[in-house]
Design a protein around this nucleic acid. Structure first.
Length: 265
DNA sequence: GCGACAG
DNA sequence: ATCTTGTCGC
């Protein structure tokens, strides 16, 4: 009857597209799209974003950031994006940080290239591909990830943090250094102060002061996390500097990768 | 038509 | 984002 339980080899902790919390991405859309196709993809995938409350405190936090080589000129032609003639180098870095010991657990960098220009609102189509490759290089699966960009605080409620978070089906948070959309009230100068970021009558994130007398950051849920948890996580990781430790370290790593070796692609 | 506009 | 030196402030 009960056949000896074949001890299922622990599924590699490799970070790869998952299918949890009922979210499923049956077909991975391509990244080489034109302006309207990209927006359509965002509108469609935004419906899969879930602002669940994560169970328990995340311990291993991944920080992700990208450094790019100077991009050429972008141009549009009949609604299509005619990217630079010469692809832009993309140096993606991911740093897994242990919130308990406050130490780096693992890092991964990946060099790629893109012809998709930077267009406000379509950042993920330029950075996500290489970023996903970096995540795939990790041997451990982070409990959550913080991105250097917006989550749902986006025109179509689908910023970089949502895109990558949904793709990897991992709790994700968007922590941008500046505003993309939305309005908010002034906030106190004290660390920890926060006000809601609103767009079209709905709350899309929060403006958070991580350091006294320092410009605030824009926090918004990416996927599988609620507003309160997102803000809490950012404040927890950003106790010393303006940016959360994971993304701050990823920022340094990506820039080092760019400076030390624009080698293989 | 004129601004605004993550990185 | 990237190009860049020194400099004012906590």
């Amino acid at each position: 009857m009960s056949a000896p339980r074949v001890k299922r080899s622990a599924p590699s902790d490799k970070v790869a597209p998952q299918r949890k919390s009922g979210v499923r991405i049956n077909r991975l859309h391509k990244w080489d799209l034109d302006l309207n196709e990209a927006k359509a993809v965002q509108r469609g995938l935004s419906k899969l974003v879930r602002l669940d409350s994560l169970g328990g405190e995340p311990r291993f936090i991944a920080g992700a950031d990208v450094a790019v080589s100077p991009s050429g000129s972008l141009r549009f032609a009949r609604g299509r994006v005619s990217a630079d003639a010469t692809p832009t180098r993309v140096f993606a870095a991911v740093v897994v940080w242990d919130a308990e010991t406050r130490a780096v657990v693992e890092t991964a960098t990946r060099i790629g290239e893109t012809r998709f220009p930077y267009i406000p609102g379509l950042l993920s189509f330029r950075e996500a591909p290489t970023l996903l490759e970096a995540f795939s290089a990790l041997s451990t699966r982070p409990d959550a990830a913080i991105f250097d960009g917006q989550g749902i605080a986006h025109p179509r409620r689908f910023g970089l943090a949502c895109h990558v978070g949904l793709w990897l089906d991992i709790p994700s948070v968007g922590c941008a250094k500046s505003r993309l959309i939305g309005t908010h009230a002034d906030l106190p100068q004290d660390r920890g102060a926060q006000v809601r970021l609103v767009d079209d009558g709905e709350v899309i994130g929060s403006v958070v002061r991580t350091r006294t007398n320092v410009k605030p950051v824009f926090v918004s849920p990416g996927h599988r996390i609620d507003f309160a948890s997102a803000t809490r996580l950012v404040l927890k990781c950003a106790a010393r500097f303006r940016l959360p430790e994971p993304t701050r370290l990823a920022d340094q790593l990506s820039k080092r990768a760019k400076a030390s070796g624009p080698h293989d692609v």
